[in-house]
Design a protein around this nucleic acid. Structure first.
Length: 414
RNA sequence: GGCGGGGUGGGUGAGUGGCUAAUACCAGCAGACUGUAAAUCUGCCGCCGAGAGGCUUCGUAGGUUCGAAUCCUACCCCCGCCA
């Protein structure tokens, strides 16, 4: 494919889904030097779940790997104990070595869904920080000033507002920077919120006589709520290990405005095609839903496969768009007493409230009553209006539905 | 060491003796509509109770009062400022 491919790859590599490159000319020089670059990516094994917000960066790493570069993945078993200072960081409980290892394993299993494991070397922070003495800590911290730390937007804001900043939070960027020195990173990757930390890395490297790493900053993906960055604590995330239909549905639930960002950052749909999509959306010549379905398929296929994506789509169309029943419905086994032979027989009816609770379709009796009152409950497609349901309305195999997405199939207990 | 601020329902955050199961916003749930689990609109959103109503909740434990998230006491926790 020759030279054109190389040029195209650079364009895609350096433009799509990139906010800022520090320093771009230097990075280009490195790329053109033909040297195998050392790419740095770290993670804290405090939260092992990877969601699409992380994937934006991981895809970029993969693109670099495709060009033959070497990824060094740092397991932040020390920084995990500090917690990245993003806001009101509650002090984290110390994780045991066991937990850290387990988390790291879970993390990497998901990580290598996107990133090429063959071209990745995994190292642990404890390999170097485990040997750190107080003297080393003092030496490291003495290289920086509080004023420098306060350059970081997050710190500056909190300081101005009189919000607390823990001393260990200042340590975080320093440890991260030291990582760069140890592994002699050529390029570090991160979301835009990582800018400060990455820049500290550059400085520290220069202080010890290393060439400073290049910094590659990517946009923060907005979560399914459409307003805040995707994060686990905000409950607006799509995890990479979610089942296909769940993933598909969550993608469909993002606001239309977010669609093109997702396309750009999370799929390989060519730029040219994305341009067409934008034009179609602008001129309203396409139903956004159609494009969003394409997006959902692309994403599901990336983490599962084509077939799973198609099945998820079929399920979505049936269950959400046409409000039909899903293929698989959880079953609730009901004992003989419930079939009207004992106390229920006296009233000749089912206690639907009780049934909903038993079936875990409702958290409490109060909620169950509300749901019924709001017309959210139907039995075999018939809307229910009262708490009591005549015995004959429910038989073996009846399906109770609450809202659009909750179902249970009633069956006799063995 | 001194001074001050604060701990309220999943979150933010009102409320300074009864009208407060507790304003508002966000999230969540449901319904309608639809072009999707988008958007919009409407309703719901502690628990128990068929209902009337009852019970539990505002850091913890006591107390004052006919009555407390609101007052008092002690304790716990968080934060800022000045040294």
């Amino acid at each position: 494919m020759g030279e054109t491919t190389a040029v195209e790859d650079y364009g895609r590599l350096l433009r799509r889904g990139v906010v800022e490159i520090i320093v771009e000319e230097e990075l280009v020089k490195l790329l053109e030097s033909g040297r195998k670059l050392r790419l740095k990516q770290g993670f804290d094994p405090s939260r092992p779940d990877i969601h699409l917000g992380h994937v934006v960066g991981l895809r970029k790493l993969r693109q670099f790997q495709e060009l033959g570069h070497q990824l060094i993945l740092i397991v932040g078993d020390w920084t995990a104990q500090i917690g990245d200072p993003s806001g009101e960081s509650a002090t984290r409980p110390m994780l045991s070595a066991e937990e850290v290892r387990a988390n790291a394993e879970t993390y990497m299993k998901q990580f290598f869904k996107v990133v090429d494991q063959e071209k990745t070397k995994v190292v642990w922070q404890s390999e170097w920080f485990g040997k750190f003495t107080l003297a080393d800590v003092i030496a490291l911290t003495s290289k920086f000033t509080v004023a420098q730390m306060l350059q970081r937007d997050d710190f500056a804001k909190r300081y101005a507002l009189g919000r607390p900043i823990a001393i260990t939070e200042f340590l975080y960027p320093l440890l991260q920077a030291y990582d760069s020195v140890v592994i002699e990173a050529d390029v570090e990757f991160g979301g835009t919120d990582q800018k400060f930390n990455c820049l500290v890395g550059r400085e520290l490297q220069q202080m010890v006589g290393q060439p400073p790493q290049q910094v590659f900053l990517m946009p923060l993906l907005v979560g399914t709520d459409g307003s805040q960055k995707m994060s686990k604590s905000l409950e607006n995330y799509i995890a990479v290990d979610e089942p296909p239909s769940e993933m598909y549905g969550k993608v469909m639930s993002i606001p239309d405005d977010l669609m093109m960002d997702y396309f750009e950052l999370l799929t390989d749909v060519p730029d040219k095609e994305l341009e067409e999509f934008r034009a179609e959306l602008d001129s309203q010549s396409v139903n956004p839903m159609v494009l969003k379905k394409r997006l959902a398929r692309e994403i599901v296929a990336e983490f599962h496969d084509e077939q799973a994506a198609n099945e998820a789509e079929v399920a979505f169309e049936r269950q959400v768009q046409r409000r039909e029943l899903p293929e698989e419905i959880p079953a609730l086994r009901v004992g003989d007493a419930w079939w009207g032979r004992d106390e229920t027989a006296i009233e000749r009816s089912w206690d639907l409230v009780y049934l909903l609770c038993e079936a875990k379709l409702s958290k409490s009796r109060s909620e169950a009553k509300r749901l019924i009152a709001q017309g959210a409950v139907e039995i075999d497609g018939k809307k229910v209006t009262g708490d009591r349901v005549p015995l004959e309305e429910i038989h073996d195999g009846s399906v109770i539905r609450v809202g659009k997405r909750r179902f249970v199939k009633i069956g006799k207990a063995d």
